[in-house]
Amino acid sequence: MKEMIRTGIVLMLICAVAAAALAYTNHVTSAIIAERLQQEKEAQLAELFPTMTNFEERTVDGRSATVAFDAENKFVGVLAEGQTEGYGGPIRFNLGINAAGEIVGLTVVAHTETPGIGDVIKETWFTKQFLGKKSGDTFTVDAISGATDSVKAMETGVEREYNEIWRRFSDGGAAGAQDTSAPAFSLAGVADGTYSGTASGFKGEIALEVTVAGGKITAINVTAQQETADRWADAKKVIEEIIAKQTVQVDTVSGTTISSDAIIKAVQRNQRNRREV
């Protein structure tokens, strides 16, 4: 019995140390990896849509895609992932469509087709055949002897996914656009007093009370929150900024984005509540 407990404790300690080491390595590397992926995506988009200056992830009807815009904020194209059932399993590919609805890019990301036979579908000379196709075109390409199933899978898959993506994103995925414009924040005409507001934070509801005196926020009192303790201490700097600047257009604190955002939203909302009163 004693030996069993000792064994268990040693194993548990080894696991705990291993988990801590991994968490730390992940903490160090994840930002670098994320940044690189972002850069790769940017390079990929810039190649597909030369006039692109910025892009945004949007989700319409349960499908997400990267939507690219030019300098005048006009929709120039969309890049989304599609999938089809190949001969050896699912084939995943990236499909780029420009604003005219033409396919401008097709890359196979992952597949399990037979090496040397079905895997031609990933070659550039094969995917190239789909470029320029648009709504209403036939999505047939040259058949390849021995690889009929793989080629057919790509034909039907690309056509189906093209239609699914284009149906949702032909307008730039406007339905999935995030409302980033914050309502104007003004305390003019707000009677002195204490108002309350809430917003969901990282771990739960954040409730706070805002004291207004002479058209100014004089104090913000948090009445309830369950955020991570050390992150919350940082996020609270947002409160000081809101009071100092008398606006909700303040910077969030890195590492506490969700908590900071929640504070800002809560202050914003209670201002809206006041209007209704």
Partner: peptide, 22 residues
């Protein structure tokens, strides 16, 4: 053996993450 595997897997995952980053 489980202990060895945990130790080895930890280092491998760290190497994997570091390679992916750098």
């Amino acid at each position: 053996i489980p202990s060895f595997i945990i130790i080895i897997a930890t280092f491998v995952t760290m190497v994997d993450m570091l390679l992916n980053a750098y």
